[in-house]
Write a protein that binds this DNA or RNA. Structure first.
Length: 190
DNA sequence: GCACGGATTTCC
DNA sequence: GAAATCCGTGCG
């Protein structure tokens, strides 16, 4: 099965985020062997105007991968302890990425994967994979099952309340009724 | 140099 | 509700 073409990743991240649902992440790990999971939840981060997107602070050492070639990885550390895995989209020079928030385990996964910080641990994805090409190499993303439009649900992105009106964009996408989708954060009573 | 806080998770 | 825990970013 071939990986996605570069054309696929040149598209708008909001579009790619939906098209990635159902795709497989395949990691051939030197120590833990073949690890595979199916993407069931994503979020789009779209350009330097998007206040929720790290690239809104401009091109820095940290955000450079998002300005780089599409189809590559953007992996960064958050809260001092979790690696977040993103796929870079849009042409080089235009910063955008799709955050992979949840996967359904398929092979070699030995821990829960529910949520973006947990799935990187389960797949053993680390910052070493930052800027790696996801179209070849030990970590790749490949088409798998088709997820129909009716099965795709959307919501505002999680954990970006600081982003003002951008926090309201319905750019989180997930497979409806899939048990591996991350739970929405608990709301305190209001 | 140094203070600040985050695309989260877990525990009280 | 708040801690855990590291480092990129912004400002001096």
């Amino acid at each position: 099965m071939p990986c996605f073409s570069t054309d696929f990743y040149l598209e708008d991240p909001v579009h790619v985020a939906q098209k990635l649902l159902g795709a497989q992440i395949i990691h051939e790990h030197p120590e833990f062997g073949l690890l595979r999971g199916r993407i069931v939840e994503t979020e789009a981060y779209r350009g330097t105007d998007d206040k929720a997107c790290h690239a809104s602070a401009g091109k820095t050492a940290r955000t450079a991968p998002m300005f780089g070639p599409p189809g590559h990885a953007y992996v960064y550390l958050i809260y001092g302890m979790y690696d977040m895995f993103n796929v870079v989209t849009w042409p080089e020079g235009q910063a955008a990425a799709v955050l992979i928030r949840a996967i359904e385990p398929l092979e070699g996964i030995e821990r829960t994967t529910n949520g973006p910080g947990r799935l990187t641990r389960a797949l053993h994805i680390t910052r070493d994979h930052n800027q790696q090409n996801l179209q070849s190499g030990s970590l790749v993303v490949e088409p798998d099952i088709e997820v129909s439009t009716e099965q795709i649900a959307c919501s505002p992105r999680i954990g970006v309340d600081y982003a003002g009106t951008w926090a309201k964009k319905p750019w989180r996408f997930y497979v409806r009724d899939n048990p591996f989708v991350s739970k929405s954060p608990k709301r305190t009573t209001t």
